[in-house]
Structure formats: C-alpha cells, structure tokens
Design a protein around this nucleic acid. Structure first.
Length: 122
DNA sequence: GCAATGACTATAA
DNA sequence: GTTATAGCCATTG
C-alpha cells in the first residue's frame, strides 16, 4: 500500500510536460522517499538521500524539500539533520510549521529544535 | 567546463 | 556538549 497521495507533487512538477526534461525526477524520488517515513518517527537527510539512491547527497535532499510547496502532503517535517535537530533557521515560517506538524504527531522539539523522539531507522 | 551555492555530515579541537 | 573545517553531491549561472 502506498504512501501519501502525491497530489502536490504532480501539481508542482516544473517541466514534466516536455520530453527531455526530467529535472523534477530527482526531487520527486526524494519526496516519495520522505513519504515512506512513518508518522511519529524522524529520519535524517543523509538516510533519505541514501534510500533515494543518492548516497552522500544529503544537501540535495534539503534542496528538494525546500522546493516543496506548502500544500504538499509530503511529511518533510519528519526530516531532521544528523544531530536530530531541525535544520531550518529558527524563527522562520518553515521552522514554525515544522514544530506544529511534529507536535501534532506527538514529537516535541526543544528550544534549540532538538527532537525528543529517537530517529527512525529504516 | 568551471565556480558558487545549499533545509548536510563526519571529524577534530 | 559546542565550534571550526573540510568533504560531499547535484544544481545553477
């Protein structure tokens, strides 16, 4: 059974209409990988990258998540850095929303953005 | 083709 | 614990 409905994914797809451009392909793969993280658990950029077939490309995962539209059902907020903290600049809109989303799933972030729950191991 | 960029990471001090 | 540094990968100009 599958993951979240990638409605927002399809909505975004920058240039999928044309033939040779598969630029959204990588992002999409990353997004789908993120969708596989169960609710209430966390994962890291590095792990997501590896599982998406891009070992070592943690930064690329960050870029993909940044492109993600707000109305997406992709649980981007379940992705944190290797330190178990949020990588979003504190005080920003994104960081706020991440805290809210995680709180809704029972994950509370400390003042510095440190998650209480242990990270999810694939 | 090269240099700069970034929601990263591992290591060392 | 934290900070500093040097790799890392794919995109972008």
């Amino acid at each position: 059974m599958l993951v979240c409905k990638p409605r927002a994914l399809i909505t975004y797809n920058p240039v999928m209409s044309d033939k040779h451009s598969m630029d959204g392909d990588l992002d999409q793969r990353i997004w789908l990988t993120v969708c596989a993280i169960p609710a209430g658990k966390l994962s890291t950029y590095g792990d997501v990258a590896e599982r998406a077939g891009l070992p070592g490309a943690a930064r690329r995962v960050g870029a993909a998540l940044r492109k993600l539209p707000e109305d997406s059902n992709v649980p981007w907020y379940r992705v944190v850095n290797a330190s178990g903290k949020s990588s979003l600049p504190p005080g920003t809109h994104g960081a706020d929303r991440q805290r809210a989303h995680l709180a809704a799933e029972g994950i509370l972030l400390g003042a510095g953005g440190a998650a209480v729950l242990r990270r999810y191991r694939w």
